[in-house]
Design a protein around this nucleic acid. Structure first.
Length: 950
RNA sequence: GGGGAAUUAGCUCAGCUGGUAGAGCGCUGCGAUCGCACCGCAGAGGUCAGGGGUUCGAGUCCCCUAUUCUCCA
């Protein structure tokens, strides 16, 4: 690894500096300009209604029109901030919603609000949300405006203002702040949305010919088959207003670009498809930052805006080319690199690591596309790090988290690029083998195998094939790919949704559970909801498997790696004869704790009061393991590498597991140090300090937050003073001395670049040690030595065994040679070849020699007697065992030339002994199970050879 | 979640339709040399990832497990 990085990559510091220079230069120059910038705004807008006028006059910005991406973003947010919108930071690209892989739209973070599942953060909000989309990835760089990474500016109303206000502000922002001339604008409305059309026409004063009605596919928004939905209205920029107002076709990309989409959420759609008006109507809008930048900067596409162009220049510099001088293909490659560099940097910045699954796979695919397009441009050494550095520098001002993670981002890029180069090398080798067979064409199956199994890009296969004057069967490739897709689809088994559905329903309808388990292990609670056998119920009786929701609970719900508590619920029960519910696990569904278990006795009704009691022993063990996990992370940082980051963790009752990013195994020596360090901290009896504080304060104090994890504004900080400080919602011991003892059980790899340590803490250590001790004592007993001498003793035994084995093999072959020497003289001449060579046969029985040696004997005999000799030897390897027969045949070249093949011959002989066999024409081996038939078989073989050679 | 592939000497890898486990580099010794590098000769080094099965016989075929690579969702 280190050899790679030093020989393949330029030193990081040099490339980083170089990139910064390139970017600075690009900023000074600005991107090349082809379209003239839009004309200065004319005096806008006819008369608005009186209701609107007040906000409008207060709003009119006096300053210069925004032009750079940063200015556009700031102008948008300020505009809405001035209109009482709360400015919210961009959410992570990794969404809260587990059903969605990535944040694909500006409204995604607000989806729970629109669906009524979460409180609104404010009546009005505005944000610039980073997004990733890869469904149109093939179009990136080919069209003017497809992106994988983009920023969506949005203003949102959660049951506050609605259609007319949203439309008027959108227009005002576009014309007054961004200075777009009304003659350059066209709007679309949903086919049936007369209201929106009337507002555009009568309130805003848009020319009716420039209001286009669109159908459901384009202008009706819904988040799913059911739920809130409503019509949209979009604003388009018209690059060629001189073409007139008649026959406007908004699909014409060369003339129009959509830059602002307003969604009017006003209906709820039920399962039957019926729309009912919503009581609380919402506004959800999106303006593509890159698109607005393209319009205001007067450049022909989004890639040449100041949001991306510096990266194109960086890549062009690395390739030694100039963007404006390139042909379309080259420009496309640079655009892809520019676009994807932003995406991968942001993804890694939000904690995604390259892998074969989920979003990690999306990241990997993007990374590899960057490398490939770099190669197309002639970049022949690693350059991803340089692109990452440039992208971080370009975006860090608005996304400061990138700067904080610079080291980790660049390291991930380096690792992943090196891995891909290995893949490419292997693929090229395999393809060379295919080409060496001089086929007429590379078949679809071959190309697909290279792609599917070895990850070798199709385009490269095509390219290399072309160099050899060959084509690739693309249709065959597509067919194979389609087959693969079908397989994956067919195998996608739907998990048991019904059970999950009932719980989801119950959880969605319940209030957040109040967790009391930090202070108390016993707590009076009220049963809010019950699910029996997967269906919501009012009542559960003895024997039922239940899932239940309480108003408050001392039970810890599984989360943050720690398992849920176990325990019992007890109460008077419905009949008054007492109810007991055994709780076996607690999970969380959003902020509702779901207790799963079994009713042991009595009846439980919704509304019952119960005493919830956590199993103290289990909890204590979990706490010991959890605090130990924190100590482990601290020790790893101290002993191995301060940059070690958590990649996952499990805290169970009887063990703990900690996964972390680390490029190499942790040595046995280091593991010992870690153990000693942790046990030292335990012995020092540190009191833990747990407090809630604002996240910024926690970070400033140096608390370790999990990379890529999302945290609320107020977080819980678990502090072992002087040793470890982490953000953590789990439960912990009050003093490290409670852990008692810590022991590492194993260290190993779980995935490339990720190591796993398994350990035990607290009482579980004793159980583990006792088991180990039992094994050691039993070994000592068997070997009749002291435990400390076992290793030495076993080593000596191994050496002895090996030596004995060798001596035995040597003795066997010596014996075989001796027996063979005695047999050589007994060869019988039965004929002569046409060349005058004597043909001799030697058919003998030789017991007590195992197969491999017998073969050596036969071959030696054949060589000794001559090329015209046919040797057949059969015997019992173990004279006492009639169930196993070995037969060998060694035919000299003259015998083979005479038409006899050892393999076929010996097979026939073996049949007589109840077996079979084969081999090469000159040497063959066979076996059988009937030792009593051996003599007869050998006799027959001799006759047959006599006949054949005589 | 579903496919495909790989795992053989310290390292990089051959080993075809089952039939005596190999090469290159590295290592050790000897030779050659004033000495070193190169070179020549000899040698050590393998439970063919682990477990089960088929077969007279499995590195090779089948199944399971582990690890790594890779594609699809």
């Amino acid at each position: 690894m280190s050899a790679h990085s030093s020989s393949r990559g330029p030193p990081a510091s040099v490339s980083q500096a170089a990139c910064r220079r390139v970017i600075a230069a690009a900023r000074r120059r600005g991107p090349p300009s082809r379209h003239p910038a839009p004309a200065a705004p004319r005096r806008p807008l006819r008369d608005h209604g009186p209701a609107l006028r007040s906000t409008m006059t207060a709003a009119s910005p006096a300053g210069p029109r925004p032009r750079s991406g940063a200015e556009i973003r700031e102008a948008f947010l300020r505009f809405y901030e001035a209109r009482d919108h709360r400015r919210l930071p961009s959410a992570s690209l990794v969404p809260e919603d587990p059903t969605v892989l990535l944040t694909i739209a500006g409204m995604l973070p607000f989806k729970p609000v629109f669906l009524g599942q979460a409180e609104r953060p404010a009546p009005r909000a505005t944000s610039s949300q980073k997004c990733i989309r890869t469904n149109d990835i093939e179009n990136v760089g080919r069209t003017a405006r497809h992106h994988t990474f983009f920023e969506m500016l949005g203003n949102f109303s959660f049951g506050d203002y609605f259609k007319e206000q949203a439309i008027c502000w959108a227009w005002e922002l576009s014309t007054e702040v961004f200075g777009l001339a009304p003659r350059n604008l066209v709007v679309s409305v949903f086919r049936e949305d007369d209201e929106a059309e009337a507002i555009w026409r009568d309130v805003v004063g848009v020319n009716p010919k420039r209001i286009i009605r669109m159908d459901e596919a384009d202008n009706f928004w819904a988040s799913g088959p059911t739920g809130p939905c409503g019509p949209c209205s979009e604003i388009y920029y018209d690059f060629r207003p001189e073409d007139g107002d008649d026959g406007i076709d908004l699909e014409d990309d060369s003339r129009f670009i959509e830059f602002y989409n307003l969604v009017f959420m006003q209906y709820n759609r039920d399962a039957a498809g019926v729309l009912t008006p919503l009581a609380s109507r919402c506004i959800d809008t999106g303006m593509g930052l890159e698109r607005m930048a393209q319009i205001l900067q007067g450049v022909p596409n989004n890639y040449e805006t100041d949001l991306i162009y510096p990266l194109i220049e960086t890549a062009a510099g690395l390739a030694g080319v100039a963007y404006p001088a390139l042909d379309e293909k080259g420009k496309t490659s640079l655009k892809v690199i520019g676009d994807h560099s932003r995406a991968v940097t942001q993804l890694i910045g939000d904690g995604v690591t390259a892998s074969n699954l989920g979003r990690g796979y999306i990241l990997r695919r993007l990374l590899r596309r960057v490398v490939r397009h770099g190669r197309l441009l002639g970049i022949d050494r690693p350059f991803l790090m340089a692109m990452g550095e440039a992208a971080i520098t370009l975006m860090a001002e608005v996304h400061p988290a990138l700067e904080e993670r610079r080291g980790a981002i660049v390291a991930e890029l380096e690792r992943e690029e090196a891995r891909f180069l290995e893949t490419l090398e292997r693929g090229e080798k395999l393809l060379a083998e295919v080409l060496a067979a001089r086929p007429a064409q590379i078949s679809g199956a071959q190309a697909f195998e290279l792609y599917d199994t070895y990850g070798f890009p199709l385009e490269l296969t095509e390219e290399i094939a072309e160099e050899h004057g060959l084509s690739v069967d693309l249709a065959g490739f597509e067919a194979a790919m389609e087959q693969q897709r079908q397989r994956a689809k067919a195998a996608a088994v739907s998990i048991d949704l019904t059970l999950q559905e009932a719980i989801d329903q119950v959880a969605a309808a319940s209030q957040a559970t109040a967790f009391k388990g930090y202070e108390a292990l016993e707590h009076p609670s009220c049963v809010l909801a019950l699910v029996v056998n997967g269906a919501p119920a009012e009542r559960a009786v003895a024997g039922d498997r239940v899932q239940l929701v309480l108003d408050s609970t001392p039970f810890y719900g599984e989360g943050g790696g720690q398992v849920g508590d176990r325990g019992v619920l007890s109460g008077e029960g419905a009949g008054g004869e007492g109810v007991i519910v055994l709780i076996e696990g607690v999970s969380r569904n959003r902020s509702v704790f779901v207790h799963a278990g079994r009713v042991e006795r009595g009846q439980l009704l919704v509304g019952d009061l119960v005493t919830a009691q956590v199993d103290r022993t289990c909890r204590r063990r979990a706490q010991a393991n959890h605090t130990a996990t924190h100590l482990l992370q601290a020790a790893l940082k101290q002993v191995v590498d301060p940059a070690i980051g958590q990649a996952g963790s499990l805290v169970d009752f009887d063990r703990l597991r900690f996964d972390f990013h680390c490029p190499r195994p942790v040595s046995a020596d280091e593991l010992e140090q870690i153990e000693a360090l942790i046990n030292g901290w335990i012995a020092e009896a540190h009191d833990l300090e747990v407090q809630e504080m604002e996240i910024e304060r926690a970070r400033a104090a140096g608390a370790v937050a999990m990379f890529g994890e999302k945290y609320a504004d107020v977080v819980r900080v678990v502090d072992v003073p002087g040793v470890s400080m982490e953000l953590c919602g789990g439960t912990h011991v009050a003093n490290t001395a409670e852990i008692g003892l810590f022991k590492i059980i194993s260290e190993g790899g779980v995935a490339a670049g990720i190591r796993r340590i398994e350990a035990v803490a607290g009482p579980a250590v004793l159980a583990w040690v006792a088991e180990r001790d039992r094994v050691v004592r039993e070994l000592a007993d068997r070997f009749k030595v002291q435990p400390g001498e076992i290793v030495e003793r076993v080593g000596a035994l191994q050496d002895e065994l090996k030596a004995t084995g060798k001596a035995l093999a040597a003795a066997r072959s010596e014996l075989a040679v001796a027996k063979a020497a005695a047999l050589a003289a007994q060869a019988v001449q039965v004929g002569t070849t046409s060349g005058g060579e004597p043909l001799k046969i030697l058919v003998k029985r030789l017991d007590g020699v195992e197969g491999a040696s017998l073969q050596v004997v036969a071959q030696k005999l054949q060589e000794q007697v001559g090329i015209g000799t046919a040797v057949v030897i059969g015997g019992l390897p173990d004279p006492a065992d009639l169930g196993k027969v070995v037969l060998v045949a060694a035919f000299g070249s003259a015998v083979v030339a005479a038409g006899q093949q050892a393999g076929k011959f010996i097979g026939d002989v073996a049949k007589a002994c109840g077996g079979g066999g084969g081999g090469r024409p000159n040497l063959a081996q066979a076996g059988g199970r009937d030792g009593s038939a051996l003599d007869g078989a050998l006799k027959a073989a001799e006759e047959k050879l006599r006949g054949a050679l005589g």
